[in-house]
Amino acid sequence: MNPNIVEIDNLSFGYKGRLLHKGINMVFPRGKVVAIMGGSGSGKTTLLRLIGGQIKPSKGEVRVDGEVVHQQDRDGIYKLRRKMGMLFQHGALFTDLSVFDNVAFPMRELTDLPESMIRDLVLMKLNAVGLRGAYHLTPPELSGGMARRVALARAVALDPNIIMYDEPFAGLDPISMGVICDLIRSLNDALGATSIIVSHDVKETFLIADYVYFVADGEVVAEGTPHDLMQSTLPFVHQFVHGEKDGPVPFHYPAANYQAELLGQNSAKHSQAKPGLTKNSQAK
């Protein structure tokens, strides 16, 4: 059996000529927690969507369990997706269903289990995330951390082989963050699954990840165990891991010379460069 459940091979993806990913290679070994890290807008979430087959790569391929995702037809992709569970950034709970029905949703839709068994399974999953007592609530009644835990219970409802987490720590208080952190690790080990975490929260991710990929400018710039990366002398990794303001990722968006701009030496040129102004002057 292939030791890697997901393999990304020389993957490129982009919209309208602008490449978001340029030849990415990654492997995700079975049973491990692997993190993909990078700044906002570096296309981390898009990688998850490529693995899930929601979008097609421009070049290269993603293999899940040995099968190339983008070559599958609809049924093939749905079959692959049954091996996956995904936790969306804001939970993406179905707002018209109760907590219980949310967790029961994949079981009811995809299996023919009797209702009594579904009930037991749902309560087990909810118990695992500590929310068995909240089964009757509706999503608007949940706090952010609770919603994320319910979504996690739903993501693992069918005991997937691959669990993907899209920014699981974003916008949570420290307690909820710790809870989610523990849950990801313990669920991964209990289910014998592979977890893929997309995040930019260094502390929490490094705590639970076995292996980390750093993505910047559409390329993998660094990879290794959290321990190695903490010691890394690569400027980008160093800046990211230690949260420094300036470094290879500059603080300033590329701009004209500050002093020159303030003194108004080339203000005429500047106003022409502004699209809004040109439009107005043309309209006149």
Partner: peptide, 25 residues
């Protein structure tokens, strides 16, 4: 409004990822 909100909150995406067809469901 309901469908738009389901899309905005990624509910339709989540359904897709669960191998449930949002058009049928």
């Amino acid at each position: 409004a309901e469908i738009g909100l389901m899309k905005t909150t990624e509910q339709l995406s989540a359904m897709e990822m669960m191998a449930v067809n949002p058009i049928a469901r």
